[in-house]
C-alpha cells in the first residue's frame, strides 16, 4: 500500500475500493495499469507473480476502462453507497448568498 493510501485510510472512514480484481481470474497481464487514464492502478511489468494494485482508489473516475479491457473479466466496478444511494441536498451545491 502506498503512503498516500495509508494517509487516506488513516482518517475516520476507510476508502472505498471501486476496482475489485479477482485474484483467481487475474492473469497479471498489466493491461489495466496500461489503460487507466488516471494513473490509479499499478502493476509491476513482466512479473506474473504480482497482482495489479489499486493504489489511488479515491481518484477513480468509474470509467470502467480497466474492466472493459481485462481479458479474463477479472475486474468488477463497485460503486460506493454515497453514489448509488445518494441522499445529499442538491440545494447546497447552488451557492451561498453573501449579504
Amino acid at each position: 500500500m502506498s503512503a498516500d493510501t495509508k494517509m487516506a485510510t488513516a482518517g475516520t472512514a476507510a476508502v472505498h475500493n471501486p476496482i475489485v480484481i479477482d485474484e483467481k481470474l487475474c492473469i497479471r497481464c498489466n493491461l489495466c495499469d496500461w489503460i487507466c487514464p488516471g494513473d490509479i492502478i499499478y502493476k509491476i511489468e513482466n512479473d506474473k507473480t504480482t497482482m495489479p494494485e489499486v493504489v489511488y482508489p479515491d481518484e477513480c473516475w468509474y470509467c470502467g476502462l480497466c474492466q472493459s479491457i481485462c481479458p479474463t473479466e477479472a475486474i468488477t466496478i463497485v460503486f460506493p453507497d454515497v453514489m448509488i444511494n445518494n441522499k445529499s441536498d442538491v440545494v447546497r451545491l447552488l451557492g451561498k448568498i453573501v449579504d
Binding site: P37, G38, D58, W61, Y62, P80, V82, M83
Partner: peptide
C-alpha cells in the same frame, strides 16, 4: 472545480484528469 452530489472530487461528468 466545484462540488457535486456525491462529494467525491473525481466523480465528474467530464474527465477529472
Amino acid at each position: 472545480l466545484s462540488m457535486n452530489a456525491s462529494g467525491l472530487a473525481f466523480d465528474s461528468w467530464h474527465f477529472p484528469f
